[in-house]
Amino acid sequence: MKIEVKNITKKFKENCIINKISATFESGKVYGLYGRNGSGKSVFLKMIAGLYIPTTGEILYDGIDLNKEDKYPVSLRAFIERPSFFPDLTGYQNLKLLAEIQDKIGDKEIMDALEIVNLIEEKDKKFSKYSLGMKQKLGIAQVIMEDPEVLIFDEPFNGIEKESVNKIMEYLKSQKKEGKCIFISTHIMEDLNRLADYIYEMDCGSLIEVSNEKNK
């Protein structure tokens, strides 16, 4: 999949959060975003995920502007900001509920996703009983379980122990090799250096490319 961002801006009332960003994102690459709080990373990723609509400009998914037609990027999954699940359902039940919407995957794929994020032992615990790290892992699992072409993560590793972070990173690297387009935003530059092919800095709503020679 090719995502073309064409001169997009995003304003909330009079505040300009995203300012004339243009970029192209392709399959088989990991794009890293970093920047201070309020720099517009989450808003930018939400626009890519189709949750927010650009005030001006357009985002094309394989040449199609989905916002104009009330369509959605079929093979895109995102985990942006806080993990959002039903607190009185277990981790597994929450994933099952989401998987039932498109009904493309079964129990095996859900279990595989839980295994990748090291959450298999806690799958039958209620979401409300999860620690921050477990909640983050479930958020990542809902992204990867349906094997999407585009994966978006916003601060995914908050509160997750190093062992699991390494496992998830290895998985994401393998996904990149399989031709997936991955977006990651984080405060931790070290994580981006390990994963990203291209690193962008978000500053006052603008996107500045900082190349990552090691991974290219």
Binding site: L51, Y72, R77, A78, R82, S84, F85, I101
Partner: peptide, 19 residues
């Protein structure tokens, strides 16, 4: 109210259109 309060809608919108 649970669905909206827990922001499940943000995950659903990646799986089906808004309508």
């Amino acid at each position: 109210s649970k669905y909206l309060k827990n922001n499940i809608i943000s995950y659903d919108l990646a799986r089906e259109n808004y309508k």
